[in-house]
Amino acid sequence: MGRLGSALTSAVAIGFGLLTLLGLLAGGFFGTIANLFIQITVITAAAAVLIGIANLLGVHFGRIRERRGGWGYSIILLLSTIGVLLLYILERANVLTGTPAPTTILLESVQVAIESALAGLVLFALVYGALRLLRRKVSASGLLFTLVLLVLLAGALPLANATPLALIRDWLLAVPVSAGARGILLGIALATVVTGMRVLIGQDRSYRE
């Protein structure tokens, strides 16, 4: 049964993968089939997202039930989720009305505020990381990294417009940075092609674990 199940999963991955590839390349009838497969994948992925959220809530519910460390925070998390869902249901039932809708206010004022504050907090981590790099043993790579970092930061100052620093910054971004980024992106694309081919010819079967 185990071997049969493994063969079936491999057949599903390879078969549907090759059919989708054929549809995306050839179009026509196979293209329609490929689009259907992609739609089914999106819906299945959406179901997976809901399962993930149910699992998250289940884990926190278990933490509250067993009074494990940090269970108070779990109550806050569950209340926040239930609160949003309740607001949404009340809106749909036309019990809560108003423009903008309460869920929109909650999203724009609270969710976005917390997100922005967390993104702003990254500044401290980045600056601290850069300082730690400077404190480490001096190396050619570290020096080059710091030099580029400082030139680009100084070049971004409004005062630096049309000065040699701004020109150096523009050249750095247009030539070496662009070249490095293209090289890295091409490397990622090549690795994607190799890994994809390995999956489609059945060499990589990590989905059976």
């Binding site: 991955a13 694309a189 090549l190 994607t192 092609v193 489609l200």
Partner: peptide, 24 residues
């Protein structure tokens, strides 16, 4: 695993075409 295999199979084909036509 069947569902995972389906997602990986279709996703691989999409990623392959995307990598070649969108990046390479």
């Amino acid at each position: 695993n069947i569902a995972i295999a389906f997602i990986i199979g279709v996703g691989t084909a999409v990623a392959l075409v995307g990598a070649v036509s969108g990046t390479l």
